[in-house]
């Protein structure tokens, strides 16, 4: 049995519209639930009929401390991403350009650590952080996030540096520049495209992290968005409007970034997936 071209086009159209509806449904329902009072038991598919009920948002901000959480997420993501970029680019340069036996070994070790799931070392990491007073601190979670994202960054930078013609660096060497000047003046400015990829991959991962942040950030003044919403959600089982409002507040920054930088997000993710 073969479908006519037109019928087939119709099937594809229904599939696409259906998938889009499925993907948007949770966002839509969060929007309706967050804008209705808990006493409103109308279907969650219906918008609020008596005007928007803002108290859920007020509650998410006061009780859920969502603004503190957004601030914490910005601080942690910014610091950790900058460190990943700086340490990653620096480390990748000698590993890509001086392929001695030692450096190959170091590179392989970094690569191999991509296979270590964060939760597999939960006990020793938490024990270590507890001993050096890193639990519930910015520097503690930043250090863990950096160590988690460095290997992929180093790999992406090293792959990219290997595609840069070495003749540029050799010419500079002949002109009397030393290796450090060559890196900072010649190589570093060329790394912009791969830096965009690294920033997006590491930034999104760190911004959304829950598995480590859940255990490392346990006080309400230190929690980032993900653990803050997790904690608020479990306290608010009878008042899901506030939990939905907290989710939307936590969602807003990434949504705005996505609207403006959509192209970079998709490209960066593909580059990361193919290399990783």
């Amino acid at each position: 049995m073969t479908l006519s071209r037109r019928a087939w086009g119709g099937v594809v159209g229904v599939f696409l519209v259906g998938m889009a509806a499925v993907q948007l449904a949770p966002f839509y329902v969060a929007l309706t639930v967050s804008t209705k009072p808990r006493t409103d038991l109308s279907s969650r598919w219906l918008p609020p009929m008596d005007g928007i009920y803002w108290d859920n948002f007020a509650r998410a901000i006061e009780r859920g401390q969502m603004l503190t959480a957004v601030k914490n997420s910005v601080i942690v993501t910014l610091l950790a991403t900058i460190l990943v970029v700086v340490l990653g680019a620096l480390a990748a340069y000698p590993l890509a350009r001086r392929r001695t036996r030692l450096n190959k070994l170091v590179f392989l070790a970094f690569l191999g650590s991509l296979m270590i799931p964060p939760l597999s070392v939960l006990v020793p990491i938490y024990t270590l952080m507890n001993r050096i007073d890193g639990v519930n601190t910015y520097w503690g979670i930043v250090a863990i996030m950096v160590s988690g994202q460095l290997p992929l960054a180093i790999f992406l930078y090293a792959s990219f540096i290997q595609t840069i013609p070495i003749s540029l660096e050799e010419a500079a060497l002949v002109d009397g520049a030393n290796r450090f000047q060559i890196f900072f003046r010649i190589v570093l400015p060329l790394l912009k495209p791969v830096t965009a990829t690294v920033v997006i991959l590491a930034g999104v991962f760190i911004w959304n992290d829950y598995q480590m942040s859940l255990y490392m950030l346990t006080t309400s003044d230190m929690r980032t968005i993900a653990p803050a919403i997790g904690a608020f959600f479990s306290q608010q089982s009878s008042n899901l409007g506030a939990a939905a409002a907290a989710s939307l507040i936590g969602l807003a920054p990434i949504l705005v970034a996505y609207l403006f930088l959509q192209r970079y997000f998709m490209k960066g993710m593909i580059a990361g997936a193919e290399k990783g």
Partner: peptide, 17 residues
């Protein structure tokens, strides 16, 4: 879009469904 959203947020929203 959901790829970029924290799974904690996706989970909370799916719970409403």
């Amino acid at each position: 879009l959901p790829v970029l959203v924290s799974p904690v947020i996706m989970g909370t929203m799916y719970y409403l469904l």
